[in-house]
Computed example of a mutant assay.
Amino acid sequence: MQPVLSESAEVVVRFNEADPLGIVWHGNYIRYFEDGREAFGARYRLRYLDIFDQGFTVPVVNVECNYKKPLRYGDTVVVETRYVNTEAAKIRFEYTLYNKSTGEVVCTGSSVQVFVDQAASLLQLTIPPFFAEWKKEWGVV
């Protein structure tokens, strides 16, 4: 059985992320996904710069976001990010966002990123060797 690789990050909802009623604008939830990916990358040595150092970028090609409850200015959101293994040359994450003070799920979602060379001209159709090694190191092969 493969291990579940996950990381949590906390983000305090900033004033500029809310509308005049104090409710977080829906597009900011995608930014919270990004915060989760950054925290995951820092923990598991899969940061964007780590990937860039191997000659690749990983643009997001798909995002799904399912809103459950609103966040408000001043809330703290806990972003749980889980790596989902796939045999394809892509990185898939799933997210669960919680309101820290209530414990309620406010959002779930997922994202897919693909490997592209640094000139953004060639899509990588096979898993890059460094990523195969990363998967082996963390036991998700």
Rank of each mutant, 00 (worst) to 15 (best):
M1Q: 08
Q2W: 01
Q2E: 07
Q2M: 11
L5W: 02
E7F: 00
S8N: 12
V12R: 15
V12S: 11
V13T: 03
V13S: 06
R14C: 09
N16W: 00
E17V: 06
E17F: 05
A18Q: 03
D19C: 04
P20T: 06
L21K: 02
I23W: 00
V24E: 04
G27N: 05
R31W: 00
Y32R: 00
F33P: 03
G36W: 04
R37S: 08
E38F: 09
A39H: 05
F40H: 06
F40N: 04
Y44V: 09
R45L: 12
R45S: 15
R47I: 07
Y48K: 03
Y48A: 09
L49V: 15
D50M: 09
F52I: 08
F52S: 11
V58C: 14
N62V: 03
E64K: 12
E64Y: 09
C65F: 07
N66S: 13
N66F: 11
K68R: 15
K69I: 08
L71G: 12
R72C: 14
R72F: 15
Y73F: 15
T76Q: 11
R82D: 11
V84D: 07
N85V: 13
N85A: 15
T86I: 10
T86F: 05
T86W: 04
T86L: 07
A89S: 15
A89C: 12
K90L: 10
I91D: 07
I91K: 03
R92A: 13
F93P: 00
F93T: 03
Y95N: 01
Y95D: 04
Y95E: 04
L97A: 07
Y98N: 02
N99R: 13
N99D: 14
K100Y: 08
E104C: 04
V114M: 05
V116E: 08
A119I: 01
A120L: 13
S121E: 15
L123R: 11
Q124D: 06
Q124N: 08
L125Q: 13
P128A: 08
P128W: 04
F130C: 05
F130M: 00
E137R: 13
G139D: 04
G139A: 10
V140L: 04
